[in-house]
Design a protein around this nucleic acid. Structure first.
Lengths: 221, 221
DNA sequence: TTGTGTACCGACCGAACATTCGGTTAGCGT
DNA sequence: ACGCTAACCGAATGTTCGGTCGGTACACAA
């Protein structure tokens, strides 16, 4: 057996050492599998191939891990709202863009967004996350309102209700979508925007305004 | 002060005694507020106005409470699928009916359904619930497939994907809908079915087939 | 009066929990 | 050779958890 003078197994270069990011990446997956509350630091340590106490070398505690994860998810989501709006496009086009890009971000940052959406407002970290989600909601509702005023989006439903249905559908993707499962993000976001904007009964090619209203059909990746 | 010979406060008839159902009703609300895992039996006892040990007089444990709750939710949901299909209606009409009735059931049994949808498959109770949810999903996907074959529902999207989007939207209601908040179930289910079947850009009155396709517009309650 | 069943309680228990502490190890600059 | 630091560890600490136990209080029936 290959042993050191101390008799303990050689660790040297079996795996690169952890830093905050690589540790968080693993932690978030475990949190999603077992649920944040049900995941013990012991569970986490086992999965990392570390001892419990070593985790505290990288982060202050369990809650900081949660904070880092939901922070990352919120940043990615807000970035979508702030993407350059090309000044002259309609609110409807922007809304469609925000929905599509949100699906893409959700897919790209799936474990982080999943964790964010499951937060229940117990600790301070969680309450801050919920506050940010409400802010996101408000800005989308604003966009819906302007789109309705433009006339290319139905105005018989309250804008706030529309934005809740919209992002209810988008957010529900975390419950089943797995990027490695064969369904591409492009096909997914096409299907989702098609159903939400044109309806289940809509003919595939139908559109409701000038072609410019649908500027960002995704290319297959 | 009104005291008994024992010097302890009078309990008699201050509140009706609990049975399994009334206890469950409170428990489910607390589970949803704090999350099942984060809710201790102590939390529960405090909210019930009981001691921890008294809870065990009514139920075998925490997990039985969860089981009772998700069982009740699943029963209510499956009942919708088994409602008499009037033999001659189209699959599209039945699909629309199932979506609308699911919204109604979700609203009527909100705390129970909420708990069901948050179950993560850790214990046996939770795994059984998830198995039942998959069965529900399968039956809806079947319905979508038949509707697509009928031609009144778009067939450029996989039936299973459609059913996931449909029930993703429906299920997302538990994240924000509160029956006491002024929005009636009728308005909600009208809005939801309108967006999903006719699209955000759809004109309010448009329909895609014969009027019989939309047989169950809800009356205001 | 005595017995029975339902509803309830305080004191307690072992296990699991997040976190802390006092270290060791290995690589690197000097 | 020396000291420094990042990365890591085993063994504890105090706390909280779900659950148990041996009772009491009281309505009601015989």
């Amino acid at each position: 057996m290959n042993t050191r003078p101390t008799g303990r197994p050689v660790r040297h270069r079996e795996r690169p050492p952890y830093d905050r990011d690589s540790l968080l990446e693993v932690a978030v997956v475990v949190f999603n599998e077992r649920g944040y509350d049900r995941t013990s630091m012991e569970d986490l340590a086992r999965r990392l191939g570390l001892s419990k106490s070593s985790i505290y070398h990288h982060v202050a505690g369990k809650e900081e891990l949660l904070g880092l994860a939901v922070g990352r998810a919120m940043d990615a989501l807000f970035a979508v709202l702030d993407e350059d709006p090309a000044a002259d496009t309609t609110a409807t086009a922007r809304l469609r863009h925000v929905v599509r890009r949100s699906v893409e971000v959700l897919a790209a940052e799936l474990p982080y967004v999943t964790l964010l959406l499951r937060v229940r407002g117990n600790s301070g970290v969680e309450r801050r996350a919920q506050e940010q989600r409400r802010e996101f909601d408000r800005r989308v509702a604003e966009l819906v309102e302007r789109a309705a005023t433009e006339g290319s989006v139905r105005d018989d439903i309250e804008p706030h209700l529309v934005s809740r249905l919209l992002f209810g559908t988008v957010n529900s993707l975390v419950e089943w979508y797995r990027p490695e499962g064969g369904l591409s993000v492009a096909v997914l976001s096409d299907a989702l925007t098609a159903v939400l904007f044109d309806g289940l009964t809509g003919r595939p090619a139908r559109r409701s305004g000038p072609a410019a209203d649908i500027p960002d059909r995704a290319a297959p990746n």
